[in-house]
Simulated assay, not measured.
Amino acid sequence: MIEVKPLHYFVAAYEEGSITAAASRCFISQPSITHAIKSLESSLGVLLFERSKQGIKATEEGHKLYKLATDLLLQNQQLEVAFTPNSKIELHLYIQPDINIEQYYDIISAIKNTSPNIELSIVDTAEQAQLAIIDEQLLSSQFQFKILHQESYKLVVRNDHLLANESSITLESFRGLAFIERPYCTNRKAFERLLNENKISITYKGKAIHDLQIQGLVKLGLGVAVIPESYMKKDDDLKYIAITLDTPITRSIVLAYRKLPSVLMDVIEDLTCLS
């Protein structure tokens, strides 16, 4: 008889395409995932994955088991809910660190208020999550998503900076400026490519770990920075300047989801794109 838990681990490995990512998602060690898969292969007498240095790839038998396993696990969850009226539905939520979550309070509240049995917990990686508020560029193919917001970037300077009175600037204005580095930026390579194409070199005076800190460093006069519009705040000591580009650099913030209880799907479907 096949147990349910190894099927959970198999499904995670199938969807992530990686033993490491599956272990992170399931909050267990990699050997536990490997053992569960080998146990299933032994019980069924088939090979479920082809293994290589690039990761794992499902065999024909693996694809067949995935469909059956997901159906079985969903039925198992529905049985538990049907016969345990007060059972809690735990949802794992990932929030990308450089996203201003204050903009999405209404969405999180709508999810939490769908049912008194829903419990949200924050996880460290998207692989561990059923829900994620994340930059679309970082999203794996295992998720569906709704676009919440699309935003551009602005240059933030101190109010006594030489550029503070400008309403917009071009990349040429970057020349000779001292910047606070934003190493976690998903569009960093796009900005660097444009700077290189225009033969503009910039100097970094330090690194920030989040966008509130980066503005504090700008406020201290340690440099300027490029940040997403959602982190602009009312501050008399700072100025935010639009950056004029032939092809604007933007990022799309999405609500990503997978394997949600049916009670939540209606809430997700009602969300308005590009708020």
Rank of each mutant, 00 (worst) to 15 (best):
K88A: 08
L93Q: 05
N76D: 14
H8G: 00
V263F: 02
A23I: 13
D106E: 10
K234N: 12
I268M: 06
I108L: 14
R51Y: 04
I200P: 14
S167L: 06
I101A: 06
A110C: 03
K112D: 07
T34V: 07
I19R: 04
L155A: 04
Q142M: 10
A256D: 02
K199F: 14
D246Y: 04
K207M: 13
D106P: 00
I33S: 01
H161P: 08
S29I: 00
V4I: 15
R258K: 12
E119A: 07
V156C: 10
L177P: 08
L138R: 12
F27R: 13
T186E: 08
R188E: 11
H210R: 09
S52G: 13
L171Q: 07
F174N: 04
L194G: 05
N198Y: 08
A36P: 12
L40V: 10
K57V: 15
L73C: 05
K53M: 11
C273I: 13
I180S: 01
V157R: 06
G221N: 10
L264P: 12
I253V: 15
I118T: 12
N100I: 04
G206E: 08
A208I: 15
F83R: 05
N86H: 12
T247F: 06
I122D: 02
A82V: 11
F179I: 11
L260P: 08
L131F: 03
I200K: 09
D211H: 11
A21L: 15
S87G: 07
H161I: 08
A256G: 03
I227H: 01
Y153T: 08
G176D: 14
L138Y: 03
N113A: 11
